[in-house]
Design a protein around this nucleic acid. Structure first.
Ligand SMILES: [Zn+2]
Ligand SMILES: [Zn+2]
Ligand SMILES: [Zn+2]
Ligand SMILES: [Zn+2]
Lengths: 160, 160
DNA sequence: GATGACTTGATATAGTATAACATTTCCAAT
DNA sequence: ATTGGAAATGTTATACTATATCAAGTCATC
């Protein structure tokens, strides 16, 4: 019910689940969910939308945190690196993960009009069109960018 | 042979084909491939790699074009809008289309080490992993972002 | 309580992209 | 050939996004 992001969902469950998943993962992996990192994740879960780094920074600053960009970028880097949040490249914006705990390749549906972003699970990429149809989202353009290591660089890295 | 972007290919064919496809498309659709637009496309085809807007602007400027950002961004907007080039969101960079003339959803393989970008045709998204395997590219992360219109905005737009 | 790894504070700067408005060019209709 | 409008370009300024760098503090462990 809350997987899709458009339409109704139990938002408090959303938030609680996101925080708990992050806490558990940090405990399990010895990561430190410090005050600033925690607060940024809370904000992203609460707002439940893609937010620019400077939007978040504004909120932090209002709450007494320091107001320099590194404050928010460091927290975002941590959250993204550990899968608690994702960066929406097309919007230069960040959003809390909607499937915390799962290891997954996120797939986003982005409304070009209202900028609402829905994260869908991507177990089967071939079903992207079907998922969109089902919820009434009309896809106009899709970007797919896979990052990794090319043959040349792999060879250079492992000189066998 | 030249579809993949890693490894050898007939680069002059690459360039000629890209320019011809753009010229034909412009003629057919009444678009104007003006001097600046043409030159930017030539540069992208020639270099055959993802280039930042300011990299391109530097070259243009050396050739006597004006050196203000709008010069290059306007040309890039035109080329991207008409499918002659693509933006690689992950790199904030631009690359000439490797499949000009075809209507297609581009799929990019980006080396995180050398930043080389290969564009593969994406008729079947489910084969992305297979394509990568075949050419020896090791995918580490994938981003998929579909842009379009959400149900709410569609309803607001067509008030039936 | 010293060591070292990690985190935060703080200043500065780099990198990417667009707004706004004046001017010119192009093309077509008169 | 004029003229009128659309499209493209010139130009200045500014907005937005992100990182480099180094100093200082925190935390766990020895
Ligand atoms: Zn996710
Ligand atoms: Zn919308
Ligand atoms: Zn293409
Ligand atoms: Zn490489």
């Amino acid at each position: 019910m809350q997987t899709v992001g458009f339409g109704q969902h139990d938002h408090s469950a959303c938030m609680g689940g996101g925080m708990k998943a992050a806490e558990d993962a940090c405990t399990a992996q010895g990561l430190r969910l410090t005050k600033g990192r925690r607060r940024v994740l809370e904000i992203l879960l609460q707002e439940h939308r893609a937010m620019g780094a400077y939007d978040i920074l504004g909120l932090l600053s209002d709450e007494g945190f320091a107001s320099q960009p590194p404050v928010v970028y460091r927290a975002l880097d941590f959250l993204v690196a550990n899968g608690f949040a994702h960066k929406i490249q097309k919007l230069n914006a960040y959003i809390a993960c909607a499937h915390p705990g799962d290891s997954h390749t996120p797939v986003f549906l982005i409304c070009r009009s209202c900028k609402t972003v829905a994260e869908t699970a991507a177990s089967l990429k071939s079903t992207l069109g079907e998922v969109a149809d089902k919820i009434g989202f009309k896809i106009e353009t899709t970007i797919v960018e896979a990052e990794g290591m090319c043959p040349t660089c792999r060879a250079a890295e492992s000189p066998a």
